[in-house]
């Protein structure tokens, strides 16, 4: 019995999109080293399409795998489409995460939204999905169902 399934392990051992983008159109950071996870996701946007995404993550195996999967999912999508992605979809694409690791997918989701938010702010863009969005909001208080 391994801790993670094969898809998660593959994204952890061979993560896609590691790195930083020169002159990114948007940068999103979420989490902090004190919490044990901190992600940075950067995006390149042409027209309304995300043409590239890169990440840097301090964190556990599932945090790295979630970053890899999340960046892979948004490349080629329009901003509107990327904003529709939920942490549940990231988990599903990864074939599932252990309950205590669900928050890693939340982090990746937040980091993407923060990158897009940054892009929207810099370019005076309006997206309905970002209405009232708070990039600092702590949505990581749910650690999933932990069986005692």
């Amino acid at each position: 019995m391994a801790l993670y399934n094969d898809i998660v392990m593959d994204h952890f051992l061979n993560p896609k999109n590691v790195g930083e983008i020169d002159n990114p159109d948007g940068t999103g950071i979420y989490g902090s080293p004190v919490c044990g996870d901190m992600m940075q996701i950067q995006i390149k946007v042409e027209g309304e399409t995300i043409t590239d995404a890169k990440f840097k993550t301090f964190g556990c195996g599932s945090a790295i795998a979630s970053s890899s999967m999340a960046t892979s999912m948004i490349i080629g999508k329009t901003i509107e489409e990327a904003l529709e992605i939920t942490n549940k979809q990231i988990i599903d694409e990864l074939g599932g995460l252990p309950p205590v690791k669900v928050h890693c997918s939340v982090l990746a989701d937040k980091a993407i939204k923060n990158a897009i938010y940054d892009y929207a702010q810099k370019n005076n863009k309006y997206y309905k999905a970002l209405e009232g969005y708070d990039p600092e909001a702590d949505e990581d208080d749910e650690h999933g169902e932990v069986e005692e």
């Binding site: 952890f12 996870d37 301090f58 964190g59 556990c60 195996g61 945090a63 790295i64």
Partner: peptide, 9 residues
């Protein structure tokens, strides 16, 4: 700058 579970895995 890195996390223990990643090292362990």
């Amino acid at each position: 700058y890195i996390e223990g579970e990643s090292i362990l895995l």
